[in-house]
């Protein structure tokens, strides 16, 4: 594993691009609304239009959109595997047969539709939340009245994923120094089990030190975030643009016939 920073966007400057400075609350709400819309859409034109709109937003908001695209492609391999069987199991008009199994037109349409929807959601998440740092994610969740405990737990977890990933890499290096090579046999699995166990033990010990250190500094259950500033004009303009976009997509959905 060559990536040393696990959650890369977390360490990024968040105020980049067009969407960067927008209030995190608005971005989270927009993500949820658009995801629900896409999942319930029935016409492919609306879903494709969403992908195009989201891709434009990604291009405008993420300077490293190439990396984003690679991630999306990696995810697409997984989506493809999920949908591979669908044309053969969905009843309908036969298009072709493969080893005696008939593939139906309806099944192919269904598989394409699901693939498009999944991609649209991924693009939307990347566009709205891709440049959102973990602190802003926490502040946004807090601003949306998510339970304080959940938000605090999230912030803690984000913080320590990086720390424990370094711990993991150090332990792996120690194993390599002792000529351990990961293969698919019982010995390897046992060693990896010990590795995970050791990580847990060290995390547990570290957490005891942390809790004392934090109590000394007056920790009483949650972090103090600087308050989110009141939404400014630019935030409302963003919201207005998104509302217009959503209205346009809904119109497209209503006008176009459902695929199937």
């Amino acid at each position: 594993m060559s990536r040393h920073i696990v959650l890369s966007p977390a360490s990024q400057n968040t105020a980049t691009g067009m969407i960067g400075p927008v209030d995190p609350r608005f971005r989270i709400i927009c993500t949820i609304i658009f995801a629900v819309f896409v999942v319930s859409a029935a016409s492919w034109q609306a879903v494709v239009a969403t992908i195009v709109a989201a891709a434009v937003m990604v291009a405008l908001s993420l300077p490293e959109w190439r990396k984003t695209l690679r991630r999306v492609l990696a995810m697409d391999g997984f989506i493809f595997a999920t949908l591979l069987l669908l044309p053969f199991t969905y009843p309908g008009d036969t298009v072709f047969t493969l080893w005696g199994h008939a593939a139906s037109q309806q099944g192919i349409n269904q598989a394409i539709m699901i693939g498009l929807k999944a991609n649209a959601v991924i693009f939307m998440v990347m566009a709205f939340l891709g440049a959102l740092g973990s602190t802003d994610l926490g502040r946004g969740m807090m601003g949306l009245y998510m339970p304080t405990k959940l938000t605090t737990l999230l912030m803690f977890t984000v913080r320590y994923i990086d720390v424990l990933h370094h711990e993991y890499l150090r332990l792996r290096q120690a194993m390599r120094a002792r000529a351990f090579h990961l293969r698919s046999n019982r010995h390897s699995w046992k060693m990896m089990g010990y590795l995970v166990g050791m990580l847990l033990v060290r995390a547990h010990d570290r957490s005891e030190r942390i809790v004392w250190a934090m109590k000394c500094r007056g920790f009483h259950g949650h972090f103090h975030f600087t308050h989110l500033s009141h939404p400014v004009k630019a935030d409302y303009i963003f919201l207005l643009v998104m509302a217009v976009l959503l209205a346009a997509l809904i119109t497209l959905e209503v006008l176009c016939p459902p695929l199937l």
């Binding site: 605090t152 737990l153 803690f156 977890t157 913080r159 994923i161 995390a203 957490s207 942390i210 809790v211």
Partner: peptide
């Protein structure tokens, strides 16, 4: 008391 512990173990 146990919040850091739960967070660290989740991180593992």
């Amino acid at each position: 008391e146990n919040m850091p512990r739960i967070a660290l173990l989740s991180a593992v």
